[in-house]
Design a protein around this nucleic acid. Sequence first.
DNA 1: CATGATACATCGTGTTACTATGTATATAGA
DNA 2: TCTATATACATAGTAACACGATGTATCATG
Lengths: 120, 120
Amino acid sequence: MSVDKELMKGSTSILILSLLSGEDMYGYMLTQRLHQASDDVFEMKEGTLYPMLHALENEGAIESYWAEAAGRGRKYYRLTSAGRALLERKKDEWRVYSRAVDKVVGTARRRLWGGEPCEG
Amino acid sequence: MSVDKELMKGSTSILILSLLSGEDMYGYMLTQRLHQASDDVFEMKEGTLYPMLHALENEGAIESYWAEAAGRGRKYYRLTSAGRALLERKKDEWRVYSRAVDKVVGTARRRLWGGEPCEG
DNA sequence: CATGATACATCGTGTTACTATGTATATAGA
DNA sequence: TCTATATACATAGTAACACGATGTATCATG
């Protein structure tokens, strides 16, 4: 990832599950979409992605199937219902965790959760 | 930490530096203050804290000094100017990182940075 | 025909946080 | 008094995680 490695650890699975919640994707596609969706902040490496996909599949959070595209096989991944539940838990965890960091770091910024937007 | 380990990796140093930016503290005190300041979310273990303190001291981000309190020696840590600069960089990194995760995860909540509060 | 992008995958390495363990003093309760 | 708990510092070994390096193969482009 392009952000400090220190901060990247552990958030890989929530990112993958989130992307797959909108659409079935194959590995390479996931890396591209993640890059776009994060405004070029995240650049997941293959050495990170594929082992994580296999682990999530072993857990039953995602399922794979092969499909042909442009004369080439692509391995697509689909979120299972268990994976959807896992994603919700991970979202909750992320909210708890990031709010706690914000509180300790105590920057000047404010965060609102589910409220009305002030701007934009 | 009481949150999933997966999410904890890498944020230890920003938490320690943030706490020390307000006041000199000794190790055990840091664990207690972190617990309070995070609304009981973070519970840093000694096996995590002390090696991290020593590493930060080796980097020159913090300095230590012994002081007597209650008939017992306590090893206090003080943020250096280099440590203060490091903290600012880590805050910037945290903002970039957490915003990127939010964007990908795409929850219903909104985040504002330094803007006027909507509520509260 | 060569180069780069696409596409999947594994192995070894380094970092990081944790568990377990060790030492020692102060305090509170039985 | 004795014991348990909290306080206080520290290290060694372990497991998880992301990465770099590497390998294979196809497709488009020049």
